[in-house]
Nucleic acid binder design. Structure first.
Lengths: 138, 138
DNA sequence: GTTTATGTTGACGTTAACGTTAACTTAGGC
DNA sequence: GCCTAAGTTAACGTTAACGTCAACATAAAC
């Protein structure tokens, strides 16, 4: 049970909970917690959870969402956008709205990010200047 | 006391705690909390806090840091980088290290962000496609 | 001089996202 | 058949970032 559970072919790869935990450097508790929140729903073999490639991808999306500062509930909705290409027109329009509002958040975040990077550049320049000054004084 | 406390000239502008709370849409409790954590240190007139332009800028930086997902303790260190242009060579080198590690975080975040934006574009395209399909079926 | 708005300092409450522990099951290795 | 590694559920604990409330001060407005 130290190796990935099974690996019959390329696409039917299957992972245990601790496989994923190791790969993404999180705890199994975290993965189960995400399942509790409706972000994952792996197959079961008896009691044990069995994850496929799609589950793994979802987990990746969750972790990226987290890194971007979204709450788990938001991430859930974003993932739902992801895997439902169907639905009625009304539903689709609603999805588009959700999506655009999330996009706006990211765009604002990008602005913050670029500003902060520029300020880091400024600080660095001033530090370098000061360092040269000090080495000249010596 | 409904107007900004005083406004003698352009640069000596001064704000009350609720001026800032209103401007940035946060509570006074939040501002006091940030002071507790060492992120702000306004003047006092008796008991009351008095904020100047520099305090206001610091608060802005704090809020941007938060939006970028940094913890308050990290933000504190980043701000300290900001207003100490001096110090010894050893200290400056240390600052540069801090700064570069923070920069790396932001660069990784930018990658996540661009990826997510691309995926949003994908989802939108698929939604639009599906909508056209539905309108054609009618 | 008393209401009213704004301010203050504690101190306890809350929420999200897990950590930690306990008590138990299950599948293989020897 | 027993041990160990990995898994399970359930429940309580923890931390950061505030919210909320009490009890009080102060200054302007009437």
């Amino acid at each position: 049970m130290n190796q990935p559970i099974r690996q019959l072919s390329q696409d039917s790869a299957v992972f245990s909970i601790s496989d994923l935990a190791r790969e993404f450097d999180i705890t199994t508790r975290t993965i189960r917690f995400y399942e509790d929140k409706g972000l994952l729903s792996p197959q079961r073999s008896g009691q044990k959870r069995i994850y496929n490639r799609s589950d793994r991808t979802r987990l990746k999306l969750v972790l990226r969402g987290k890194r971007l500062g979204f709450a788990l509930a938001d991430i859930r909705r974003m993932i739902e956008l992801y895997d439902e290409p169907g639905g009625e027109a009304k539903q689709l329009t609603l999805m588009l709205g959700q999506l655009n509002s999330n996009r706006q958040l990211l765009l604002m975040q990008r602005e913050d990010l670029e500003l902060q990077l520029k300020e880091f550049d400024d600080i660095e320049l001033r530090c370098q200047k000061r360092l040269k000054q000090l080495s000249n004084d010596a």
